[in-house]
Simulated scan of single mutants.
Amino acid sequence: MKILYYDCFAGISGDMNLGAMIDLGVDPDFLIAELQKLNIEGFHLEIQKDIRRGISGTKATVVVENPENEKHRHLRHVEELINQSSLSPEVKILSLKIFDLIAVAEGKVHNIDKQRVHFHEVGALDSIADIVGAAICLDYLKVDKVMSAPIQLGGGMVKCAHGIMPVPAPATALIVQNVPVKTGLVQHEATTPTGAAILVSIVDEFTGQINFPIQKTAYGIGQRDVSEVPNVLRVYLSETSDNADNTSQKEACMLECNIDDMNPEWYDHLFGKLFEAGASDVFLTPIIMKKSRPANMLSVLCSKNIAPEMKAIIFNNSTTIGLREYQVTKTVLERQEKEIETELGKVRVKCSYFQGKEIRFKPEFEDLKKLATEHGLSLNEVEIIISKSR
């Protein structure tokens, strides 16, 4: 099991996260090449070794080349930019999730719809690179679980586009609701809205207790160097090999409700919203309720940190007036994704392993469909050819 742990003793920002990920082993050339898939000009990534209070690490700086010409974007502009790129679907989904989290928080602070929020900072090129870069790095590391210590927010006041604000900034305070935090270590903004949104979007468990072996420690160096506290983000990487059966366990949340009065056509929209927001699984179970009424039980499996968002989607997009919630443990087979050559062309496949043996081999459906169309074959015929190509 591969675990990424954030030790946010001095807070987190988008650039500190990028530095920590590169220091941990993310190939900087790969990161730069992936960011170029956004097809926007006007920025570049500078990477260098640096030191804060005797701690050395990697400093990543997104340099905006012509800041005076930079646009202020709305959420839809950022969504179009990401959706029209050639980034992987996983990177797109996580990037959009982080941006949406910030937009919702900013919208609540200013009492406007999230689509009307002006991204003075998070819509700027440097923040786009920080957020999309975070998704690229996480996808590169292929970890099974992300954990974090309580987040240090800092203290005092901070200057932003709207004037002087208390620390944590109002948007940050909303983003970290229901997440363990600390304050007051330093008298400045230790955690930015971008840094907070990245953590809340990716962390499976917040805990100050570490009960796993640490294989690697890395540091992301912050831009500020004015405090007695080293302005660094420390991350740990752990990879245990004691899962002889090739399984790992993850804590998750199950949300359930019984629905007997909703138009069945609505379920497709509801499912789409839940999966888009990060649900691991969504399914219906036919049931019989009081007075022998046929109904469906909606079940949503998700990580604990996004359960509040899942509840909001269910209440806003279904007819239920109540939910059940309980914690579950998922046992997950080890999986590998790879691309293989066949006589029909390249195909992405997912392989699952149990007790050291491959027990599942599944071609990506979109690739199956594409090859079937290109070669005038049925899906079954394409699957048979792919199986023989292994």
Rank of each mutant, 00 (worst) to 15 (best):
I136M: 02
R234A: 07
D15P: 07
D268A: 13
I385Y: 10
V179P: 07
D245I: 02
D204G: 06
Y140D: 10
N69W: 08
E358Q: 15
E70K: 02
K304S: 14
D245C: 03
Q115I: 12
P67H: 09
V91C: 01
E68A: 13
G208M: 05
S127G: 09
V328T: 12
H188W: 02
W266R: 09
A105Y: 04
V232T: 03
Q223N: 15
D139L: 04
M262P: 03
P264S: 07
V186G: 00
C351F: 11
M1R: 05
S318E: 09
F354L: 15
G155V: 06
V328W: 08
G322M: 01
V117A: 11
L344T: 10
E251P: 02
A277M: 04
V235L: 00
L38W: 05
E343Q: 11
V63C: 05
E251F: 10
D50E: 10
V226L: 14
S148N: 08
G376T: 07
E337Q: 12
T191E: 01
E189Q: 02
G155F: 08
I102R: 13
E383N: 07
M16F: 05
L94N: 08
A173V: 06
P193N: 01
P264V: 05
E374C: 09
A307T: 15
V62C: 01
I55K: 09
E46R: 13
Q177G: 08
K346A: 14
F315M: 14
Q115S: 14
E41N: 13
M16C: 05
L368M: 08
D144A: 04
S56Y: 11
G133N: 04
T373K: 15
D23M: 01
T172D: 02
P89R: 12
C351D: 15
L153V: 01
I385L: 15
D126S: 02
F99T: 09
L101P: 00
V78Y: 02
E205R: 13
L125C: 06
F206Q: 03
S86A: 12
V117E: 15
K2G: 06
V91T: 08
R348Q: 15
G208Q: 04
T373H: 11
F283W: 14
V203C: 14
E341A: 15
G19A: 04
I384A: 15
D15H: 03
N246G: 00
D100R: 14
P180S: 06
D23N: 09
G184H: 00
M310V: 07
P286S: 13
L94T: 07
P180V: 01
D29S: 14
A307P: 07
S127D: 06
I385G: 12
K273T: 00
R224P: 00
N243Y: 11
E334N: 15
G278W: 01
